[in-house]
Amino acid sequence: MSAAPAREARAERPGDAWIIALLFALAFAYDTVEAVANLQQLPLLYLGSGIEASVPWWLLIAGVAMPASLFLAALWIGRRMRLVPRAGVLLVALGVSAQLALFAEQLARQIAVSALGG
């Protein structure tokens, strides 16, 4: 029996990395749009509830800045990696961005409940 011939590694094209980065940029942009919507709508909800002094502005601003910061950090970390590990780093950063968005939403809810006296 003879051993199977080893597969040659495919050469990566520079355009492939740009395509992956663009696809992840769209996903991070969606997270940013959600954060901007929260920045616009949450103060109105707090105003309607009569707790406008308790609006967590720091949390809303951090929510807008976080997706872009994570995307840039992932690009910087993966800058010398091959395509698949670079995509993995971007995927982990996207997951962290989603988790932080959920955490911020929960924190804003807890701030509102405590401001309402509950």
Rank of each mutant, 00 (worst) to 15 (best):
R10E: 15
L22D: 07
L72V: 06
L23H: 00
A112E: 05
G15S: 12
R82M: 11
T32G: 14
G95R: 04
R109D: 05
A104Y: 06
G48K: 05
S54I: 02
R79C: 09
G78T: 01
G15F: 13
P43C: 10
A17L: 10
V33D: 02
R13C: 04
I61G: 01
P5N: 03
A65Y: 05
T32I: 10
A29L: 15
E12M: 05
S97E: 01
P43G: 08
V55T: 12
L22A: 15
G88H: 04
M1N: 05
R79M: 09
N38C: 08
A6Y: 01
A11P: 01
G117P: 06
M1C: 02
S54F: 02
S49P: 00
R7Q: 14
L70A: 07
L100A: 15
G63H: 10
P43T: 07
R82F: 06
L116W: 01
V36R: 12
A65F: 12
Q110L: 14
G78R: 01
A74Q: 07
V96W: 03
A37Y: 07
A112S: 10
A37Q: 11
A25V: 05
A35I: 11
V113L: 11
A25R: 12
A4V: 12
V36H: 09
L94Y: 14
A104Q: 10
G78E: 02
L116E: 08
A74I: 09
A25C: 09
A3L: 15
T32D: 05
L83F: 11
A29T: 15
M1R: 02
L72H: 00
A25S: 15
A17I: 02
V113H: 00
L70E: 08
M81K: 10
A21F: 01
F28R: 03
